[in-house]
Amino acid sequence: MTTPAGQTQFDRVVMSIAEPLEEALETELLGYGEVVPQAGLLGDSAGRCLLWFDGGVPVSAHHTGTGRSDSEALADIAATGPYRVRLVAIDDPEELQDGSLAPGAPAEQVLGDPDLASRTRAKADADEQTAEDEDLDAVEAFLADEDKIEAIQKRAAMEARQRAEEWDLAVED
């Protein structure tokens, strides 16, 4: 997987991802952290986990070895430290990979650190409040654009049926 261009702001081997998560939160990182577990350092091609941050808050994760995402990708790196972690602030915000990772998930799931998880969630909530205030006009405009919504719905309906076929799930005719 190619990663977007940016500035490396942290690059070291750590026993746990506590320090890079704190660093990302403190610097409100917009970018990603590349987490390479010990096995990877030793030359085993076990893969790496890319953890994306928006304003220092984790938003998605993807594991290149297992191909799994979000909390499953986190499960793939839990208890596999030490890690080499590189935090990169990306140049183009458009390249941020959003996902459905809960903000406190890395701190809670990989570190078992409820305090960091709680601070991360608080930051996410604060960002949300600002975003909501700014965005309501945008939401209104978005909802007024029936063609756009119809396109989203059609695409999702098609994707749902394709996935259902891949996953052997029965669909309605």
Binding site: E132, D135, V139, F142, I152, A156, A157, A164, V171, E172
Partner: peptide, 22 residues
């Protein structure tokens, strides 16, 4: 959902998945 574009978009997506499964 929360009243944001990404959250509403995701909510609409979930609805389409649900509809596909009946």
């Amino acid at each position: 959902v929360q009243p944001t574009i990404p959250a509403i978009t995701d909510g609409l997506k979930v609805q389409e998945y649900a509809t596909a499964y009946g």
